[in-house]
Design a protein around this nucleic acid. Structure first.
Lengths: 224, 224
DNA sequence: TGCCCCCGCCAAGGTTGCGTGAAGACTGGA
DNA sequence: TCCAGTCTTCACGCAACCTTGGCGGGGGCA
């Protein structure tokens, strides 16, 4: 079910939207000002945001920027008739679409459907599993046999690069550059130490790696 | 959706770009210095890179070289007015285009579109198959009868050059140059040793090659 | 036919790269 | 200030790889 957040301070509009959207099987939540709207945005992670530009506490474009700082959720703006400049500013700030008040419910619903359709489906699959352990990239967590595995920062970074390039051969230069930064591209020694450490923590038999494989002379490969 | 990475240490510019590009349906990520920029580059594999030359930690041209070492992603450089020599150095290092600050957003967007448009030819067909074995250039992997074939670094480089020029005749000089570097152009002996090794690992009958063919007096040819 | 160049094959020696253990340097928190 | 965890550095044994040399065969050319 598609979840919609409506940020608007006019009670009649809020109620009308709530009733109409709920009737179309949208899950609706509401906020009456910019501050609580941003909070609701972060808390509820809706699929679409409907935002009235005429809020009592904040400029509408600031709300948009506040959202766009961390989310690409589609934003549909409601603006009073005649406020052209505000409209442009809203689009420049990152809004996806706008509707002029007074608006017909059909038009709003059409734009809503379009916005949802355009939305990017899924960012990434941030979880990579093997028969032995699981790597959760988003939570920065490794689980083995149900228990968390404690990794040092360096170990984690190394594993992360390998996991993001699963199945692919990652060059020693690339690993060194991404984990230690440029200027360390010849310190292949570090890799050996930390690969050994990762293997001790993750491999069933660290001396005969099954997942963290060495490609002699070239680099390493993570095979889930 | 086109993904853009912006590397810049000036927060206002970063924010302006982020907002404007996001409004144009670009997916924007940012980094504030060269080191984290290079890391982001490798991690996120954007379609275009926008790079400010005035970074706090690294010379801009070094960032460009760091990227060009493994990627052909288009690079658009931002430079302050009057720094002509820097600009030239950046282009020499492998940048594709430059914009002088202060710049109009329209100009930047136009150059961005142009860079993306030009970038198309890159994506090779990274997998080459024969009836006997398969070469996956992206993963640096050779499979034969379902099992991985272990190649030494030199063997792999040789096969890679031949595979990228499949069906074409590759001269001995060219092979020697690309695998061993300049200065080895007369060491044809190396080729014989390593072609023999490749044939042993890949050909059904190494003494009667079907895929890795010799063109006497000229060079070798890989026929899938 | 005989010579010669080019190619394929084998084997040995030297070098490089990898895994491992451990000791010192460093950092952040108590 | 001390302490624990972490990072860096080093030395060693071992295996794999690269280089080099030599030998034999086959095809082109006189």
């Amino acid at each position: 079910m598609t979840r919609v957040l409506v940020i608007d301070d006019e009670v009649p509009i809020l109620r009308a939207l709530k009733i109409n959207l709920a009737a179309r099987k949208y899950e609706v939540s509401t906020a009456a000002d910019g501050a609580s709207g941003l909070a609701a945005m972060a808390r509820e992670r809706p699929d679409v945001l409907i935002l009235d530009l005429g809020l009592p506490d904040m400029d509408g474009t600031d709300v948009i920027r506040g959202v766009r700082g961390w989310s690409s959720t589609p934003i549909i703006v409601l603006s009073a008739w005649g406020q052209e400049s505000q409209k442009v500013a809203a689009l420049d700030a990152g809004a996806d679409d706008y509707v002029t008040k007074p608006f017909g419910m059909d038009e709003l619903l059409a734009r809503l459907r379009a916005a949802v359709r355009r939305a990017v489906p899924a960012p990434d699959e941030p979880v990579i599993s093997t028969a032995e352990f699981t790597v959760d990239l988003a939570r920065k967590r490794v689980t083995r046999a149900g228990a968390d595995v404690r990794l040092t920062p360096t170990e984690w970074q190394l594993l992360e690069v390998l996991a993001r390039n699963a199945e692919r051969l990652v060059t020693q230069r690339q690993l060194l550059q991404e984990v230690w930064g440029p200027g360390y591209q010849n310190e292949a020694h570090y890799l050996r130490v930390y690969m050994a450490s990762l293997r001790r923590k993750l491999e069933p038999d660290p001396s005969a790696p099954r997942y963290l494989l060495t490609e002699p002379g070239m680099g390493y490969r993570f095979c889930p």
